[in-house]
Amino acid sequence: MIGATRVAMVAARAQPEIGGIESHVAEVATRLVREGVDVEVLTTDRTGRLPRVERVDGYVVRRFRAFPRRRDWYLSPGLFWALLRSRHDLVHVQGIHTLVPPVAMLAALLRRVPYLLTFHSGGSSSAFRERARGPQFRLLAPLLRRADALVGVSGYEARRFQQFVGPSIRVRLIRNGGGLPRLVSAIAPDPDLVLSVGRLERYKGHHRVVEALPHLLAARPDARVEILGSGPYEDELLALAERLGVADRVSVRFVPPVERAAMARSLAGAGVVALLSDYEAHPVAVMEALVAGRPVVVSRTSGLTELADLGWARGVEPDADPAVVAAALEEQLSTPVRPSPVELPTWESCVESLLEVYREVLPAAVRPSEAS
């Protein structure tokens, strides 16, 4: 190290809360610490039940109360004041949707500290929120243009936000990685198990996998669906399975993201993994499934289309009927399309690219060295 590089990584939520951004922050922060970067994760806690300060895998997590408790606005005055008082060399904002990103960017501007933002854009089950995204991002554009770097996790996301910041601002592409414990190679996949992954909300598309199951059973009489996640849509999914007469073949299970071995076993044991979401930038769960060697079916929407176009997954149209979805699942079970492991980004390659950005935007005295 040339200097002690102190990075404040700011996100609305962090593990043990679940989600793609939460997983990204944990994977990246751990590896940055190994490269000699002093990482502090600043995040929020609406419940007041999580530790205010804890050390996790070499980095420090500081949590600040956020309001209102039962809404996902994440207004956190404490986080704002902590950033104003901090002595970090760089602020790395993770995510774009809540009130945390503008607060973090404003604090960095006031402190005259370099900042970058990784978008991690996502979908919503609320039609109102989806319609409001454009005005929201246009309001944030002045803060985005002042950033020292902007990062999209997929080509789709980079292009999407390029239109809000203008052609003179470069939005870089740094994909999410994938990584699971090595034990996955010893697990034999179940050729009749369809694993649908993601938080249990309607926009994640689990219902489309359940609707496809009766059609899949015609080709695979022993097929079953396991939905891996938790959330408010669980009762509706189970009721749908009951109406379709497949309740005995649909189950819901939650694996905490910090339990890496259990997650590895779940993904590696599936015959095929599905994510038929309305919107994903570059889903960590899919990358982990691909690293585990499992074939994947995705909806041809947002960043998921990119995975299908790269030949990493088989895609189905967002309006495809259940029989078409079932046919895609059967094809991936019988004659899978999947990438060579050497094609896939890793968390190590993700961190290597981030370090290049850090070196570019930081003064030489605090820049991570090439040898670190």
Score class of each variant (00 low, 15 high):
I2T: 15
A4Q: 10
A4F: 05
R13W: 10
E17W: 07
E17H: 11
I21A: 09
S23D: 14
A26N: 07
V28R: 00
A29T: 06
R31K: 10
D38V: 04
L42G: 00
T44M: 06
T44S: 08
R46I: 05
T47I: 03
V56T: 12
R65T: 11
D72W: 13
L75S: 13
L79H: 04
R85H: 10
D89K: 03
L90N: 00
V91L: 00
Q94K: 00
Q94P: 00
H97S: 11
V100Q: 01
P102S: 11
V103G: 11
L106Q: 07
R111L: 00
R112H: 14
Y115R: 09
Y115T: 06
Y115H: 12
L117Y: 04
F119K: 13
H120K: 07
H120G: 05
S124A: 08
S125W: 10
S126W: 11
R129I: 13
R131C: 02
R133Y: 08
G134E: 15
F137H: 13
L140Q: 15
P142T: 06
P142H: 06
P142N: 05
L144R: 11
R145L: 14
S154I: 05
G155V: 09
G155P: 06
R159Q: 15
Q162P: 07
G166A: 05
V171W: 11
R175T: 09
R175H: 10
R182Y: 07
S185V: 14
A188S: 12
D192N: 09
L193H: 15
L193I: 11
L195V: 09
G198L: 06
L200P: 03
E201V: 15
V209I: 12
H215T: 06
L216H: 10
L217M: 14
A218V: 10
P221G: 04
R224F: 08
E226G: 04
G229F: 01
P232N: 06
D235N: 15
E236F: 01
L240Q: 13
E242M: 07
G245W: 07
R249I: 12
S251F: 10
S251C: 13
V255C: 09
P256A: 05
E259L: 13
A262W: 01
L267S: 01
G269K: 02
A274M: 05
A274Q: 04
L275M: 07
S277P: 02
D278G: 12
E280M: 03
H282S: 13
P283S: 08
P283Y: 08
V286S: 03
V286Q: 03
E288K: 08
L290D: 07
L290E: 05
V291H: 04
G293S: 05
V296Y: 02
S299E: 08
S299C: 15
T305I: 03
E306D: 02
L310F: 15
G311K: 03
G311T: 03
R314C: 08
P322Q: 01
A326H: 06
A326T: 06
E330L: 14
E331V: 01
L333T: 09
L333H: 09
T335C: 03
P336Y: 04
V337N: 00
P339Y: 01
P339T: 00
V342K: 05
T346S: 14
W347Q: 02
C350A: 12
S353D: 11
E356N: 12
E356S: 15
V357A: 00
Y358N: 02
R359T: 15
E360K: 12
V361Q: 12
V361P: 14
P363R: 11
E370Y: 11
A371V: 13
